[in-house]
Design a protein around this nucleic acid. Structure first.
Lengths: 167, 167
DNA sequence: ACCCATTACTTGAACTATCAAGCTTCAAGC
DNA sequence: GCTTGAAGCTTGATAGTTCAAGTAATGGGT
């Protein structure tokens, strides 16, 4: 259950250092960049935009709160606050789940859909300009594989999610 | 001065989508993971820890506010608040710059150095476990190169920084 | 000697995130 | 049909971030 041996740690060597710092720098610069871009053009932070996208892609433009939180990799608490804010903007509304009275759907409104339609092109352009336009096809492929691996390592073991007896 | 053409955008194709989402997922999971790890073990968020590290590596354990902000890729405003908090913890103190009365140094205290010494091993271990232990040497190399490129693209043109007539 | 644009840093307000409760509903076991 | 543990979601307090505006010192020019 412990994370660290805490004795005689294997420090990062020079190349690992450089790699790690490059990652840290790039990731904060990128996140800041996209946050600003979306705050300016869509009036919301990057992660909120991601929530609208998720909803827009879902059948009937709706998702249960817990599932949306899981997809977006955020806590339910954070989602509650976020949806409250988006609701104030009129971009999302809540609906009760008929089959489970505890449940809530977050539903993308027409207005929300419109915001998405209007701002998506600028956002894709920003992502292309910051990332894809600068990387070769091989680098893009690598990046995908690498990030996939890292993400899997940090997921609370979704493997066997439908095989509960294995957990 | 405009970012986006906004007409007929080149959407991401399926593979680009997968790559981008893998990146997004991994980066938020990783940042959350390290934030929690450091909050738990060192009592501060990841970025604050990074500030202490920077200071620790600098001559006389001190850096001008502006330079520290630039290194850490954050705004001076954010840094002011952050240093205020770290000062309350006794891990950093401010010192006036003798040669420029506007200037301030952030200085790592002995106490701050001690926190660093105590918590660094656990943090390196967490980084290894989440990233380096899962990637082949080639993947590590790729990651470094890719992130270097992305970071450069987002920097406010530090190239030619001492050649002001080129800007 | 005096302007004045620039640089260095800070501040306060509004917003967003996190954490630890909390409330309600569900469903499994008795 | 109760009880009880867990699931689904929310809430409020505390902490961190952002943005716009502020003060103060500097360094050129005139």
């Amino acid at each position: 259950m412990n994370t660290a041996p805490a004795e005689d740690p294997r420090w990062l060597d020079d190349e690992e250092q450089r790699t790690w710092r490059a990652y840290l720098h790039a990731s904060v610069l990128l996140e800041d960049h996209l946050d600003r871009q979306l705050q300016r053009d869509a009036g919301m932070p990057h992660i909120y935009y991601g929530l609208l996208v998720q909803l827009g892609e879902s059948p009937r433009r709706r998702l249960r709160m817990t599932e949306l939180a899981r997809n977006a990799k955020i806590t339910r608490s954070r989602l509650s606050h976020a949806i409250a804010r988006l609701e104030k903007n009129g971009w999302v509304r809540r609906e009760d789940c008929p089959s489970d009275k505890r449940g809530q759907f977050a539903v993308l409104t027409d207005e929300g859909m419109e915001v998405l339609r209007r701002t998506a092109p600028g956002h894709v352009a920003a992502v292309r300009q910051a990332v894809f336009d600068r990387l070769s096809p091989e680098q893009q492929k690598s990046l995908g594989e690498i990030m996939q691996i890292v993400a899997e390592g940090l997921q609370p073991e979704e493997a066997g999610a439908d095989l509960p007896w294995l957990r």
